[in-house]
Design a protein around this nucleic acid. Structure first.
Length: 577
RNA sequence: CGGGGCGUAGCGUAGUGGCUAGCGCGCCUGCUUUGGGAGCAGGAGAUCGGGAGUUCGAAUCUCCCCGCCCCGACCA
């Protein structure tokens, strides 16, 4: 039983000045966490109980799914990470340190290497597979910009699992098992979430999905079709375009269009000359990018910007992507800034990528590759060649759903889980093989699955709080019932304690506000701020033999007889669970 | 890393060159009060983020450094 007279807790009347998002503000005000440094937090008793409750739910669901818990150190030698090249690749985000002998160590940002090596050390037969292992660990990433309190910290608690299979089909099954376990986990945690397609990324995994908790302060943007339920990370959103018939389009014509280096200026001149009817959507924007050391051109309709995140996510094997700079133009004298067209781009050694909207047969107004000149009736496939199609244009509210053609909405969310099929990258790099039925050595295929445990605490707070404070789902609240004793006589305090003991004997956790010196108002405010789902007030109602039962989330209040309070409270707890 | 804001007691803050750095919350003592962040009286608590400089005098002006928050870039 948590007794507020002795609980290590101090609530704050004012919002902390350095907290902006609700979860951060309220978790600090209600005495759950305290900031130690940017992105680094301490957990006070109430916060730590809540965090452990989330951990407990996650652990129970992983165990139920047949995954086995192990535990690695957070402090790791660099060797394994060198073999997979991540000592370098992870860059500045990796916390590195040295021991007294000058040996290089890191604080684990994720543990693919260690799991792979652990399995390699123990197993060597296909008969041992499939296998799924997990851990709940403190992870360290030296984020460029930690933010939003514990939503994006530099130290955070994560559940990471890894599956090991002989075949691709086996991996697909392990992936499905994890997906199902995640659904159960997040349902139990009382979260609203969407499962969205994500981009597998440069490592070539075939399937990847994110569990996103919708919330206005979330940092991930995703697309949702409210009609058919299609959901995708913005990077993974697919564009569908009806085919177009170019036969009616006249021949390419070059126009003298002085001083029109921007889409707007070009549209104005076109409308002036042809009597209107042109918009940015009729023009073709040619954005020049450097993909590592290669110059590429990306074609999008003139009314859309190129979304570099989408291009980067969909361009395989490119590590750095950036907009052309002055010196890049200097190296490509064939490109006339402001008047670039895709006609003949390949002859200049440029690879042409086009957004699906720039479909074969579509006709455009675009640069003529001559200063102050544009070309009209420029047809894809007739007047220029696209080397590859790639999702490149920004996604907008109202774009067409790829499965049902309904307009999609764009929403913000917090990423609380990510599952993906890793494939053989790590097993290959670290030489994790098993013998198959034929005695032949086979590289194992892996999946990797993560849940942000500490982040989930914040995400739940974001989704459930109201103007007056936190409001936890039953499963993770620091206690199920918060009993407030008011008045100056002993009776309410004695009665409250009796009820509390009665509940605890039924296995219902209780926080008892037994402070003699705090006024009723203070206790009520604290109870609302702390957010335990059931609040019981034992005070003046006792004169009529009653106590008051409140539901935190709805604000509903009813009087119940004190004599049968334990039963009534227990029933309410059950109904809210 | 680019842009913006900020740093004064545990928390929220006032104080643009001049007296002992002010106020509210919280904390301690006493009395009173006890169903919506009570009242009165007394009290403790601050090297004004750090360093250097200008000045008779610096929380206040100048320079350097550190830290924090927000937007963007970045984030297996």
């Amino acid at each position: 039983m948590l007794k507020m007279s002795t609980l290590f807790l101090r609530t704050l009347r004012d919002d902390p000045a350095d907290a902006e998002v609700a979860s951060h503000r309220l978790l600090v005000r209600a005495g759950y966490v305290r900031r130690i440094a940017a992105g680094i937090y301490s957990w006070l008793p109430l916060g730590y109980i809540t965090l452990r409750n989330v951990e407990r739910v996650v652990r129970e669901e992983m165990d139920k799914a047949g995954f086995q818990e192990v535990h690695f150190p957070a402090l790791l030698p660099k060797e394994a990470y060198e073999e997979t090249n991540r000592w370098e690749e992870y860059g500045q985000d990796l916390f590195r340190l040295q021991d007294r002998k000058g040996g290089d160590y890191l604080l684990g940002p994720t543990h693919e290497e260690m799991f792979t090596l652990m399995v390699k050390g123990e197993y060597s037969s296909y008969k041992d597979l499939p296998l799924s292992l997990y851990q709940i660990q403190t992870k360290y990433r030296d984020e460029t910009r930690p933010r939003s309190g514990i939503i994006r910290g530099r130290e955070f608690v994560m559940k990471d699992s890894y599956s090991f299979d002989l075949t691709d089909e086996g991996l697909a099954q392990s992936y499905a098992n994890h997906r199902a376990a995640y659904i159960k986990t997040f349902d139990r945690l009382g979260m609203k979430y969407n499962i969205v397609s994500a981009v597998a990324g440069a490592m070539g995994g075939s399937s990847s999905e994110e569990f996103l908790a919708p919330c206005p302060t979330g940092e991930d943007t995703y697309v949702l079709c409210e009609k058919c339920g299609y959901a995708a990370n913005v990077e993974a959103m697919v564009t569908t375009v009806a085919p177009s018939d170019p036969s009616a389009v006249g021949a390419l014509e070059v126009l003298d269009t002085p001083s029109t280096p921007t889409i707007d200026s070009l549209v104005a001149v076109l409308n002036d000359r042809f009597g209107g009817g042109y918009t940015g959507a009729h023009t073709l924007k040619n954005v020049m990018l450097m993909a590592d050391t290669k110059a590429i051109s990306v074609l999008v309709p003139g009314d859309r910007e190129v979304d570099l995140k989408r291009v980067g996510a969909n361009l395989k094997g490119v590590s750095e992507l950036r907009i052309f700079e002055a010196e890049d133009f200097a190296k490509h004298p064939g490109l006339v800034k402001g008047y670039i067209g895709p006609q003949g781009a390949q002859a200049l050694g440029i690879t042409v990528y086009a957004d699906p909207r720039v479909a074969p047969g579509t006709s455009w107004v675009t640069g003529a590759n001559v200063k102050d000149h544009h070309a009209i009736n420029v047809v894809n496939g007739r007047d220029f060649t696209v080397d590859a199609y790639i999702e490149a244009a920004e996604v907008r509210q109202g774009d067409t759903c790829p499965t049902c053609q309904n307009p999609v909405v764009i929403d913000r969310a917090i990423e609380i889980g990510h599952i993906f099929q890793l494939g053989r990258k790590y097993a290959q790099a670290l030489n994790l093989t098993v013998l198959d039925q034929n005695g032949k050595s086979q590289v194992v295929t892996m999946g990797s699955y993560g849940i942000g445990v500490s982040r989930a605490v914040a995400a739940i707070a974001e989704q459930t709080h109201d103007e007056i404070g936190l409001s936890w789902p039953m499963e993770i609240a620091p206690a199920k019932v918060h009993i407030v004793a008011t008045g100056k006589e002993d009776l309410p305090f004695d009665t409250a304690l009796e009820i509390a003991e009665g509940l605890e004997s039924l296995g219902i956790s209780v926080m008892l506000d037994d402070r003699r010196d705090a006024s009723a108002g203070v206790k009520f405010k604290d109870a609302e701020l702390i957010g335990i789902p059931v609040i019981v007030v034992v005070g003046k109602g006792l004169a009529d033999g009653n106590v008051e039962l409140r539901t935190r989330s709805t604000g509903e209040k009813i009087d119940i007889p004190a004599a049968t309070a334990v039963e009534s409270i227990s029933a309410l707890v059950t109904s809210l669970s």
